[in-house]
Design a protein around this nucleic acid. Structure first.
Lengths: 88, 88, 88, 88
DNA sequence: ACGTTTGCGCTTTAGC
DNA sequence: GCTAAAGCGCAAACGT
């Protein structure tokens, strides 16, 4: 009986082909990450060229992120309450 | 004329609208990054579920990354040499 | 009893003397670091004075460093494999 | 009779042997740096084991460093004055 | 002197 | 829960 979180497990049937596929998927994703990071860099560079204070902008982004997380915190509490009341 | 890398500069004319646009672009990009990081996590979870050794996989990814970086550096040093020889 | 990783813990018995000793040890080490960084700078300056291309040199150092890191990773992945095979 | 800090320049007489020497000197220095960084890490680990707040310690080190730099600033100004007065 | 590039430390997150 | 690593921002260093 598998109380497995993900899928089913087929331990030692290690296929070199399948492994390669998985690794390449990871690498593709990491390229995406790198690309997006560069995009962000470009946006900041553009902002700077337009005369904005990049350092201040970074702070704004950080603050808004914290704010969003706070709301999430709140809704998590809400969910807990709803769940405790059998209304989840 | 200032050697400007990007575009033209309009320092203190800070438009709240424009600033908001820029910030939101950054935030959208950061969502992409977060999403891609989650995707990577999922791939590793899937690999684990199929019986692969995740720790080893991570190391393989790291090795291949180092290899790529090394090629990058080698190309760069070659360029440097060519440039130094006036063959740029 | 707290699951302590290192040694024994004596939290709030902060001795100003002991603290000072520790801080000074850190500072001494940081002086060493600074000194070594300056030495490196001097070597590059000397190389430049002798007509070598410093930029290229830096890249060569970087490449060799990546190579060493790659060996490290390769050894690590090998260990992982051996360990997985019960041959650790 | 050269009171030259760096020596004299012999541009294109690039010797592979000499270049290797220089690069190895850099690498030796970088090992020293790495070693010292590890030492510092150890001191902080030791401090933590004795119940000190590492984060706070780092701040203290940073503050003391800034203070020292300020004094250096001052003595630099002093030197400038002395120099201006022909007393250097 | 300036802008760009590289290194350093902090913080946060992921893995064990 | 603690340790280790990645991502991020800051600051110094370098070349232009």
């Amino acid at each position: 009986m598998t109380t497995d979180t993900t899928e089913n497990e087929t331990p030692a049937a290690v296929s070199a082909e399948e492994l390669t596929q998985l690794i390449e998927r990871v690498e593709t994703i990491e390229e995406e990450i790198k690309g997006a990071q560069d995009d962000r860099k470009d946006v900041y560079a553009e902002a700077k060229a337009r005369g904005y204070d990049v350092k201040a902008m970074r702070k704004i982004v950080a603050i808004r992120k914290l704010t969003r997380e706070q709301f999430q915190e709140e809704s998590a509490v809400l969910e807990t309450y709803l769940s405790a009341m059998g209304l989840a």
